[in-house]
């Protein structure tokens, strides 16, 4: 670990003033950043500890839920409003990592965690994310866990978060702040696709701090779930995951649907194409399959991950079938 200085921020203003300095990074639970620092992939000069900030979950009058960025993952998953109104979010968080890590990890840190690409993690390998322009050893290497959607010739890594997949499905809004002001942004816009600059993973401005996540009111989210497919039964990253909300009308049609995919792209992948194909259509397997196929029309396999296309298709259909069955 490269030497650094440590500062604990007392409030958001203090944090963003410290955070704007070159070489400063915000520190949440440390479950990803400390690991990356130990690997010297991250070498901040200053760590600004923001775990003391915004640690509340507020149920607001308009039916939305405001989750402070420093709230621990466990606290989100166990919150009654989350469990009852946004079960997909509780399920996604509980599918991730381990009990210990969920107790440490913050919401903000979870959103900003970095890829688990094997070549990103090994500084003996070429990686455009670590060293822009260096090349990518994953494209022709072990890429079983890599992207099938939205990848570029420079980067085929995936975003590892489970929580973000649910947030994407729920239309969560990210509240941001830096020394010059505050703004909001839909979570689905926060993360970038790699294109030619895989080292730029989000649209965050320098020094910008995630202060909260807002879950808009979404009554149909009571019927939502998350399914994660992985190599062991627990404590491993997703090969593919699906977050879904399904609102079925009494006549068996899709009134509303929210669908997002994990493990398939450089960002949590909101399946807008599939959603559009489903709205107003019957809740049956054929429609689910057609929607999944529409979403995956541009999916491109690499050496090892071609199975993910079929796996994603099947998992989408199974999750929608499950929700449709519950609704029936």
């Amino acid at each position: 670990m490269t030497p650094f200085s440590y500062a604990r921020a007392g409030d958001t203003t203090a944090a963003t003033h410290l955070g704007v300095a070159a070489g400063a990074k915000y520190l949440g639970g440390g479950t990803n950043l400390v690991d990356l620092m130990r690997e010297t992939i991250e070498r901040p000069d200053t760590l600004v500890d923001v775990t003391g900030l915004s640690r509340t979950i507020e149920e607001r009058g308009d039916g939305s839920l405001m989750i402070g960025a420093a709230v621990r993952n466990t606290a989100v998953a166990e919150h009654r409003a989350v469990r009852e109104r946004y079960p997909v979010l509780a399920r996604a968080i509980l599918a991730g990592a381990s009990g210990q890590i969920r107790n440490m990890a913050t919401v903000g840190g979870n959103i900003l965690q970095r890829t688990r690409c094997l070549y990103f993690y090994d500084d003996a390998a070429r990686c455009n994310k670590r060293t822009p322009g260096a090349g990518c050893d994953a494209i022709d290497g072990f890429n079983r866990a890599h992207a099938i959607l939205g990848a570029s010739p420079t980067c085929v890594a995936t975003h590892p978060s489970d929580m973000c997949v649910a947030l994407a499905a729920l239309g969560a809004v990210v509240h941001l702040e830096n020394a010059t002001g505050a703004r909001t942004m839909p979570l689905v816009d926060l993360h970038r696709l790699p294109a030619g600059r895989p080292e730029v993973e989000t649209l965050l401005e320098p020094g910008e701090l995630i202060t909260a996540i807002e879950l808009p009111q979404l009554p149909c989210a009571v019927r939502s779930t998350y399914r994660k497919v992985r190599d062991r039964a627990s404590y491993s990253f997703a090969l593919v995951s699906v977050a879904a909300v399904l609102d079925r009308s009494d006549d068996g049609m899709v009134r509303d649907v929210r669908l997002a995919l994990g493990g398939v792209a450089h960002k949590p992948w909101r399946a807008f194409t599939a959603e559009a194909a489903l709205r107003g259509r019957p809740t049956n397997e054929a429609c689910f399959r057609a929607a999944a196929e529409a979403e995956l029309a541009d999916a491109a396999p690499l050496r090892d991950n071609g199975f993910k296309i079929e796996l994603t298709r099947r998992t989408i259909v199974a999750v929608l079938n499950e929700l449709a069955g519950e609704a029936a």
Partner: peptide
């Protein structure tokens, strides 16, 4: 609360 002490910077 159970945590992983390896990922925890002591100063935190």
């Amino acid at each position: 609360e159970r945590i992983l002490s390896c990922m925890a910077l002591a100063v935190q």
